[in-house]
């Protein structure tokens, strides 16, 4: 009940503040159009770097949205409303992560084939690209809750959040972009996807606890 209420509220707030949803996609589109201009190269060179670029763009565009997971609630006081409601705090974190994934992760997954197309990513890699992002975007949201909970009372803490979260995201990028690259080379992406799923399970179990602890530290 409480879990749904928090998810519903967050999705509604994001939906009304459309920039939350558009921002990552516009960011991706702007940068992806720069690549052909900067490289001045043909389709073949672009296709070679496409798996890495598409993945890095998905990751960076999500990264810029992570700060607000808890910051907005901290600033308007509504964090206190659900922390003091007696709701289980890791569960509250989980619902925040789910709401963030629904409003940021899903658009990023659906948009990935578009950035892929602009970089001449072979079409047969689209399936694995979206599958790898389907596994990885929840990791972004979950790790984001830890980062956001740590920096929520710091002004302009976005940079600090990136520094905190980026190292944790490095393995996710390696396995995710690796899976797409293997597919373009005609190999199986199975191993990469399995490792990626392992990361997802680890984050799902540990991130809510870590973020809840971070919230408590910041409230003290």
């Amino acid at each position: 009940m409480r879990f749904q209420a928090l998810v519903k509220r967050d999705v509604l707030v994001s939906w009304r503040k459309k920039s939350n949803i558009y921002q990552p996609l516009v960011f991706q589109l702007l940068i992806v159009t720069m690549f052909p201009l900067g490289l001045g190269a043909g389709a073949q060179t672009l296709a070679k770097i496409a798996p890495a670029v598409v993945w890095i763009l998905a990751l960076l565009s999500t990264l810029i949205t992570l700060e607000n997971i808890f910051k907005d609630d901290f600033e308007d006081g509504s964090l206190g409303v659900y922390v003091l409601s007696g709701m289980n705090l890791p569960l509250a974190v989980l619902s925040k992560a789910l709401a963030h994934w629904l409003t940021t992760g899903i658009p990023v997954i659906l948009f990935a084939p578009v950035t892929g197309m602009l970089l001449h990513l072979p079409e047969q890699a689209n399936g694995i690209l979206m599958l790898s992002l389907l596994i990885a975007t929840p990791i972004f949201s979950l790790l984001g809750t830890i980062g956001s909970a740590l920096i929520m009372n710091i002004k302009n803490g976005g940079m600090l959040l990136s520094v905190l979260v980026m190292p944790l995201l490095a393995p996710v990028l390696i396995f995710g972009a690796g899976a797409v690259l293997e597919t373009t080379l005609g190999n199986s992406a199975y191993g990469h996807l399995m490792l990626l799923s392992g990361c997802a399970v680890l984050c799902l179990t540990l991130a809510p606890l870590a973020a809840a602890a971070a919230i408590k530290i910041n409230l003290e």
Binding site: A5, R16, E75, D76, G77
Partner: peptide
């Protein structure tokens, strides 16, 4: 800090507080 969500209506704000409690 009052804890009202700026882009929720008055009713939605109260409804949320009710269900979270």
């Amino acid at each position: 800090k009052l804890g009202n969500k700026a882009n929720l209506t008055c009713l939605e704000n109260l409804q949320f507080v009710a269900s979270i409690n």
